[in-house]
Amino acid sequence: MMSSMAIQSVSVCSPEHGLANQLGITINPLDISCIPASIRRRSSLPTRLAISAAMTACEQAGIKASETPSLFASVGGEMLITDQLCLELTKPVVHISPTQFHNSVHNTAAAYWSIITGCQQASTAMAAGDHTIAMVIIEAWSWLVTNGGKLLLVCYEESWPDYIDPGNGYHSIGYAMVLSAESDDKTIAHCSCPYVSDQPLQITSGLKKLIMCDPLLALTHLFQAIAKPGDVKVAPLSLDSRYWAVDVQVASSHISAR
């Protein structure tokens, strides 16, 4: 049985200035140069964020995107497209754009990723509300235990109008990681099987406030832990009722290479 997941690369992108300082991690600008013009024209911001982060993570891990299964997670997926379609449906005469309709599915980013990279491997799109990050790490773990090999994990979100979920502050951000069932010289950190802590976990108040309004940002803990070599660190994955967490340790080969 696999004792830990090997993290081969990490990547974050966002068009929001100042978010890197708030989260305490390195964030790249959104890079849409990797998206062919024909898809760029019809793709939404969350899909672009997912693809930009995923492409960087694959390049950094030195893997072929076309041969790697993928797992995409987002609380709202294509929420703004669905919002616009629902508003259109209130009109006396309804005109639904066929492109907007097929782009409204939760697996839109995953689908465009497979089309751009030519990847015919398995691909899943999922969501779990406040527990989205904990559950996507669980899904990644169970995938790697049962299938072995490597897995591209992508988490992404966009900001929405306040009327959709009042009081919540979703950010436009894309995270991506390449995970592996086995370590090699590309491994930058090791991540344990997700577990439930029996008590609330230590989280800085600023970040806690952000995650309470935007559960996808919970992945920040894991990215922070990878950036700081040292002892095993606990990375909380969710905030309420069940405190899912993982243990993270930077790979010794990665420390010496820094």
């Binding site: 599915v105 799109a125 999922m126 559950m135 899904e139």
Partner: peptide, 16 residues
């Protein structure tokens, strides 16, 4: 209280 999530891949969703 175990793992709880949704899969949504259009019409292959619940097979997955």
């Amino acid at each position: 209280t175990g793992p709880c999530y949704a899969v949504s891949t259009a019409c292959s969703t619940s097979a997955k």
